[in-house]
């Protein structure tokens, strides 16, 4: 494992922990898109179908369990927690799951490395992860009220994607036959979705003013 991959995984882990910590300690999920969190839970569930069958490393298994556990806990908090669920911006978080789910499923059925159930589900999770942040970005733009933790959550997620691209470039030059076209193209699209957010995030950081996205 190279340094970019490890740094990417750590920022990914940090993003999830920031969000869980925010929800758990201040008992509020305001500004957090339940739609995005449900999509991530589905991404992990479909990607790690073989978690107990295919063993890569202790590190991989533990990280997979953390991502599965944290994503489902976040969904549980927003939907079921007596206090947290009252802070959910239901009327603002109106993005339709189906608009993202259906195209990803169709694409996974058509473009995949092998037409098997496991492989199609894996490919579906890659496509879905690429666009799962959209409801969150729409919600941020709509409410325009971004608290620090939600801003950091999205920033860390974007950083994780950018680091994964560096990881692929590194692996391309250091390993033989390391070409995962599907992952790479979906990953680049996913990272590009953050470009706009990054721009405003750095602007607000540079000028030390509160992060606000233009309407």
């Amino acid at each position: 494992m190279n340094i970019f991959r490890l740094a990417g995984d750590m920022t990914h882990l940090a993003s999830v922990l920031v969000l869980l910590l925010k929800i758990h300690t201040i008992k509020s999920c305001s500004g957090v898109s339940l739609k995005t969190q449900e999509l991530y839970a589905l991404v992990f569930a479909t990607r790690y179908l073989d978690i107990f069958v295919t063993y890569v490393s202790f590190y991989n298994t533990v990280m997979k369990l953390i991502f599965l556990g944290s994503s489902f806990s976040i969904v549980w908090y927003i939907r079921r927690h007596r206090v947290v669920r009252r802070s959910y911006d239901k009327d603002q978080d109106t993005f339709r799951h189906l608009f993202l789910l259906l195209p990803c499923l169709v694409l996974a059925l058509v473009i995949n490395e092998k037409f098997t159930f496991k492989e199609v589900m894996w490919t579906f999770s890659i496509y879905l992860e690429a666009v799962a942040i959209l409801p969150q970005l729409v919600l941020l733009q709509r409410t325009r009220n971004i608290d620090n933790l939600t801003g950091q959550y999205v920033f860390l997620l974007g950083a994780y994607r950018a680091l994964y691209i560096l990881n692929w470039i590194y692996r391309y030059f250091t390993e033989e036959h390391y070409v995962h076209w599907i992952t790479w193209i979906a990953g680049i699209i996913q990272t590009l979705l953050y470009a706009d957010f990054f721009y405003y995030y750095f602007q607000s950081w540079k000028n030390s003013v509160k992060l606000e996205l233009p309407a």
Binding site: N60, N167, Y178
Partner: peptide
């Protein structure tokens, strides 16, 4: 045909 690389990422 080249064997696809292992899925060892998260």
């Amino acid at each position: 045909d080249v064997e696809p690389p292992p899925k060892d990422e998260l």
